[in-house]
Design a protein around this nucleic acid. Structure first.
Lengths: 153, 153
DNA sequence: GAAAGATGATTGACTAGGAAACTACATCTG
DNA sequence: CAGATGTAGTTTCCTAGTCAATCATCTTTC
């Protein structure tokens, strides 16, 4: 008499809860950004380019963990919106640089306020100590697995 | 003399770390599943249908937080792979029911083992107490925001 | 019991991103 | 310095979702 192999529930995995909560925060944030016609990936790009010297698409791709192909399209969109400027690198005929336009730079603080508000509202059910604990544990996982400093995707 | 508005870094938000870690666990899991030619959404579907009475697409959509349109296509894929069966609901001319085929049911335990292995490996840097803490905090957020906590019932 | 509205599922148009092929330029090596 | 190899960016094709429109059926209401 063989019994069926035990199959743990989805909820038995910490990864499940992580994904559920993470998806929800991101979705809530995406909804706020959508009112400004900006996606999360676009926000991350704008924030990454903010107050820094121009960055090559490849470098940006690595920093925000997207492929170079995706950056080409993302940059196209941001350029079409007048938020980013693309220029040829004078020192390397293959390379480009991306930088914020004044309009892009002006938009960042407003979007940052949305990010703040979203984070504050979502994690309000935890007190300061608990939030610190959560960050500590998450950072431990990041360190232990050598994750790239930045996400998206 | 006005100074520029302060713009917090991406890393200053707990949501940032959550997304970074969550994306990584999910990606690692997706890579394991890919060897069996299964996506994460397909796994969640198979697991949800496992050892339960047939479920309508709408109900499934609600449980796994996807649109009905997405479920139609997801089900088409799983049916094409011979893992799921779709039948007309005899009691409601509009409705359908989805259930696992024997092949689908047989696949679930193998995929569940992958899920276990992935979760265990990823969260190994935390000890049991820390993992329990993390789950407790995540569940608190889920409850506080009334997130669709999947199955139940 | 007929019209109006609600609900279940599918479809088509659209979006964002990945993978891999491709182009152009750079660099290395003999 | 010529050919081989490497690198930056773009392009094409594909996948997997959402959203909105649609069709069929069920339910409600008068």
């Amino acid at each position: 008499m063989t019994r069926p192999p035990p199959v743990p529930a989805l909820q038995d995995h910490l990864g499940f809860w992580l994904r559920l909560v993470s998806n929800h925060v991101s979705h809530a944030f995406a909804a706020r950004l959508a009112e400004r016609e900006v996606t999360v990936a676009e926000w991350v790009t704008l924030r990454t380019l903010h107050a820094r010297p121009p960055l090559s698409p490849s470098r940006l791709a690595a920093e925000i963990s997207m492929t170079r192909g995706a950056i080409t399209k993302l940059a196209d969109r941001l350029i079409a919106k007048g938020l980013v400027r693309r220029e040829a690198d004078p020192e390397d005929g293959r390379a480009q640089t991306l930088a914020l336009t004044p309009a892009g730079a002006a938009l960042v603080p407003a979007l940052a306020a949305l990010a703040d508000a979203n984070d504050t509202a979502f994690f309000a059910p935890l007190d300061a100590r608990e939030r610190a604990t959560m960050e500590k544990l998450l950072r431990r996982l990041v360190d232990a697995h050598g994750l790239a400093a930045l996400p998206v995707d």
